[in-house]
Design a protein around this nucleic acid. Sequence first.
DNA 1: TCTGGGGTCCTAGGACCC
DNA 2: TCTGGGGTCCTAGGACCC
Length: 429
Amino acid sequence: MKPPIVLMDANNFYCACHRVFEPKLEGQPVVVLSNNDGCVVARTNELKPFVARGTPLFQCAEILKTHKAQIYSSAYYLYGDLSARLMTTVARFAPQHEVYSIDECFLTLPGFKGEELNQHCLAIKAAARQETGLPVSLGAATTKTLAKIANQRAKKDSGLAGVLNLYDYSEAELNELLAATPVEEIWGIGAKRGELLRQNGIETAYELKNAPDQWVKKNLSIMGLRTVWELRGLPCLPLEEAPPAKKAICSAKSFGRPIETLAELGEALTTYVSRVAEKLRQQGSAASVLQVFLTTGHYRTNQPYYSKQITLELAQPSSFTPTLARYAHHGLAQIYRRGYSYIKVGVLVSGLVKQEALQLNLWKEGPDPWDLAKETNLMEEVDGLNRRYGREAVRLASAGLERSWWMKQAKLSPHYTTRWSDLPLATVA
DNA sequence: TCTGGGGTCCTAGGACCC
DNA sequence: TCTGGGGTCCTAGGACCC
């Protein structure tokens, strides 16, 4: 017997995080903006019919105003922290879990079924609300893809109390639900594939479930075929308890204003390289390839467009911030052209190897082992200080001090969970 | 004026080899 | 005019997700 797979997903996660610390927002429409306050990345249910996800702020400012929406810049320090608390809570309820994204977690519940399964899901929901203040929904089924559909339904249908169990549905009941599910709502079917499917007369999840394997594989690749099998109740996507190490790490952000000079681009690049290097060390990796890219805006047509990338191979894999920064700046100097207004620069590292393996190989060739030990110790100190005193408490001077190019964050929330000075005050009347 | 960031996986096509 | 077959590796680009 296949064990039930449950997907826990927070409702309007980013918006909900702001509500946790500002209870006055409860029942009020809230939106959260992307970096640079550019687009709407999250909005509460009240606004969903009027504002699509990803709409640029300037295009929906009026509608937001008429609905008296509360607007926030994205505050990832807050979301990351609440996410960790939420995952700790739900993990208690299952022998195995996979944190799939910042607000989603798959759980397996072997031995559970029927009413017992429903009650367990309700208990998870109650604990999440009690311990983190976040509203969540849960969907149970035999595969991840079906659990996703169950979860969506649980969210949309207010009669369901946030929990839907498809695990105990009969084949006929399940087919009926799939027939009422548009094909674009299936996990793994986006706009392009949705369009292709519709052109071929496949409009619902039920129709896709019954499409011939050969046709699916040819048109939607092996991933599409897996999706179809999962719709049929055949698990193809295993639970991954330990997240696999990343194969590439990237940092790239738009500036708060266009910049022209190599010096300022360099400051931003150092900042992003430092972030990438920190993430590398966190997962115990060193990079052997580094890519730098920069671009002018592509929405404004009255300005010349320029976009370029360069790939550099490191003499030795490294996670030492100054080494990576040196390569990055070397690359930037080669692709930089005067006379353009740039809006973004970025860095991507790949060819990742385990840092330990590097150290073991040292006595054969490569950098002086003594130097490497010094580099490692130095970075451990820096990472420790930054963990303790806040990100970028210690940083390279070339990352800049003024940083007038920094992204726009006009509506930033206080750091409720990471700064003593920002703790909310409770007063007794 | 103002249009996000960070990932994964797959496929096609070219270079190269025997 | 005719011009093999099969394999690997790499890269660029597309599609998707949150």
